[in-house]
Design a protein around this nucleic acid. Structure first.
Lengths: 229, 229
DNA sequence: TGTACATCAGTGAACGCGCGTTCACTGATGTAC
DNA sequence: TGTACATCAGTGAACGCGCGTTCACTGATGTAC
């Protein structure tokens, strides 16, 4: 390893350490994360951070990107284990919940209130889609294999919704029926809705058996989508 | 009106004006709401606010309580119009969404990430239940009238979840079947899950027909709960 | 291998800002007689 | 109705704090010859 690349490696490690420290800070400060606080924790002076990140917002952006990647990786790993459709679907749901419980502050960063004064750059939009893409892949595989038995509900797909879904399907060069993607989205909303309730304390004083309740709601949705037991 | 009560009335009006100004501020500052900012907007000095609120946290608490009341009132009003079960359910859902779209910052205060350094006092827990109570009243009325036709799903209620639900039912001196409340909770999660997605921008780049999509998802859930069309 | 120079990480002081909260004060309004 | 006193809203200065960011600097590390 040449001397030049050693300096580069030290630099990379430093960037990682800054992000790790910032992630730890997030837990107490939430979106109020400050460069000075991070520097303090690292035992360096705040201005030194400017060697690595041009501004606080850039550090925030890096954290958001990394969080999406971390969540996406956990979900992807979960989807890869086992090849039973329903089992995969539920595994992804559980992986997202576990990640959220382990990293509540980062979950808040991704799915909580927008940070005042911070505009998420466009780079942060694409990685946000990982989980829903995984879910639709799983449901799609079940559908193409003829294993999907969606619960019959009376409500039909309204035309504007169908159009939206068609655009999304076309973007992915897929030919998934709109009805399938529709139910995937329902499951996606349910998944993050329930996790958000749990992480942000909105379940306080109602459901105490959190894990069982989560498992149960996700099972109901799997039934609704038509993933066979 | 005696002179004494006039002073009291002016005081009440002042408190209202402070809260109204703070609510307006919330829209730009989010949870970073500051007393000095509110005072600035009102053209008074920051320390004057201490005549009305002992601290910033107390102002925040007042805003949270008022927001819950405002949301609860909107939902209650919606539930009172019409006497068709399904229509009432959907009316409540729409009322919550409309309120959230009109008051996104307040919605964030109630359903977004916890505010760093702020501990919600216990007074703010009870009023948070209004919406879910309304929803379970509507489903309950339909059930007792024999009009509920829940979609059959394979997943049974696990014992710990059933126990949680039973406690909640007993607390309300009701004898609603656990299965009904279970589906109400599913609808409740779905309702706030979708609104949170919409308000916090998580639907960006996917669903464009927001109103139609909301109506559609809520209809699917109404089907699932078994509210007749 | 040794020397001269360039690169770069980290320092520490400073700028200008906003914050919550306290306190002694002024002056207007309300109360008691 | 008029006067003396009490209440209370709002002022303005101050305290001590933390923040993002800039800038000239020191000293170590890397590069070229």
């Amino acid at each position: 390893m040449s001397a030049a690349s050693l300096r580069a490696r030290v630099r990379t490690e430093m960037i990682e350490e800054i992000k790790a420290t910032a992630r730890r800070r997030l837990a107490t400060d939430g979106a109020g994360l400050s460069l000075r606080g991070v520097a303090r924790d690292m035992g360096i002076v705040a201005s030194a951070l400017y060697r690595y990140f041009p501004s606080r917002d850039d550090l925030l952006t890096a954290l958001i990107l990394e969080s999406y990647e971390s969540l996406g990786a956990a979900a992807t790993r979960a989807a890869a284990t086992g090849n039973d459709d329903r089992w995969q679907w539920l595994a992804v749901c559980h992986a997202v919940r576990d990640w959220a419980l382990t990293n509540p502050a980062e979950y808040g960063l991704l799915y909580g209130s927008p940070i005042p004064g911070y505009d998420a750059p466009h780079d942060t939009i694409a990685p946000a889609a990982t989980v829903v893409l995984l879910l639709s892949d799983i449901a799609g595989a079940a559908h193409y294999a003829g294993r999907l038995q969606p619960a019959p509900l009376a409500t039909p797909l309204p035309a504007p919704v169908r159009a939206d879904l068609r655009v999304l399907i076309a973007q992915r060069d897929s030919d998934l029926p709109e009805e399938v993607l529709d139910r995937v989205f329902l499951g996606w909303t349910q998944l993050f809705g329930l996790i958000t309730f749990e992480i942000f304390g909105r379940l306080e004083g109602t459901v105490t058996a959190r894990a069982e309740y989560f498992e149960h709601q996700m099972s109901l949705i799997a039934d609704l989508i038509g993933l066979p037991a």
